[in-house]
Nucleic acid binder design. Structure first.
Ligand SMILES: [Zn+2]
Ligand SMILES: [Zn+2]
Ligand SMILES: [Zn+2]
Ligand SMILES: [Zn+2]
Lengths: 171, 171
DNA sequence: AGAAGGGTTGTTACAGTATAACATCTCATC
DNA sequence: GATGAGATGTTATACTGTAACAACCCTTCT
């Protein structure tokens, strides 16, 4: 499972690649890749691990930008919807999608499977339609020790699907 | 996949069964199933959906118990460790394990896969070693509309496993 | 009986995560 | 130049979770 990687790589290069991917995606979808959104994405790419919203805020402040929480959360919402980053529920944190290179435009919707180090918060993103035990095995093969797994699907239950009141933004 | 169920059932009966299961497990493991822990578990069984810690607190207060947050979180920690409930990361909430009947004592450690309604917060727990797409298909077969999926494995990365002191090396 | 110790609960205060609501700005269009 | 949509600024607050210490309840040992 080569898609699971904690190994070293050309980090400057991967940042450039991802940034170009992001630009071309936003351009194609007519989304505004503004300086703030670009900078937040860049921070996540540089971090190369899970970063909390307030971690990002801290970097922005170090940049000399007097940012407030809503600014960060808005940028994160944009990047999430654009498929450029993922939210790591377990950590209340965010990480850049590691599979931007692998997919062309339009592949916003893959289901990410993460291996999360609880110590250093590094994050590896696995690709492919694995089973639960398959993910654990693939992880073990790379030397990652799985201690806890979470599988959650969110949506509308049969009852709420019929109820119009629930259909607010239902896909 | 019969284990995915939003269908009706004998709810009073399922509560009794689960409570008996919990008692026998705690007894076998020499864990103290105290009145507070019992009541919190009961609240989750009665709710039969995801309940936040503060939702539980509210019920306790209605009971006439002047409880504070730590009391609830302690009871939840106990029940989580005992394998009687699960945490729903996506909702910052908790739900009683729906598979207590299915497993004998010692099966605390199954990986739960949840279908979570974002509208009514009802929760169905699927059993078995499904693939990501398999879960979505099984859900669709029951009339559940999946909008978003999360797969996360938490543990220790190869680096931290060997040298827990090296926290920031993962770049 | 009295002392010691582990586990549970009570209580206060606070840390960390996220959003509501409204003001302002910018830029394209009319 | 007025209008309107989208983005950001700003203030305040809601929601989720924990640290730290005190009190209590048992069981065990002296
Ligand atoms: Zn990189
Ligand atoms: Zn690590
Ligand atoms: Zn039930
Ligand atoms: Zn529902």
């Amino acid at each position: 499972m080569s898609a699971i990687g904690f190994e070293r790589h050309d980090h400057a290069g991967c940042i450039d690649d991802a940034m170009r991917q992001a630009e071309s995606r936003c351009k194609a979808d007519k989304l505004q890749f503004t300086p703030m959104r670009r900078r937040v994405f860049e921070i996540l790419l540089e971090a190369h691990r899970a970063f909390g919203a307030y971690d990002i805020l801290e970097v922005l402040v170090q940049d000399g930008h007097a940012a407030q929480p809503p600014t960060v959360y808005r940028a994160l919402d944009f990047l999430l919807k654009a498929g450029l980053i993922h939210r790591i529920e377990r950590l209340n944190a965010y990480a850049a999608c590691a599979l931007l290179d692998e997919h062309g435009h339009g592949a916003h919707d893959h289901v990410p499977a993460f291996l999360i180090c609880r110590h250093c918060r590094s994050v590896a993103e696995a690709e492919g339609d694995l089973t639960i035990s398959g993910l654990a095995e693939a992880a073990a093969a790379t030397g990652f020790l799985v201690e806890r797994q979470v599988v959650e699907a969110e949506g509308l239950c049969p009852a709420c699907r019929k109820d119009p009141a629930a259909a607010e933004v239902a896909a």
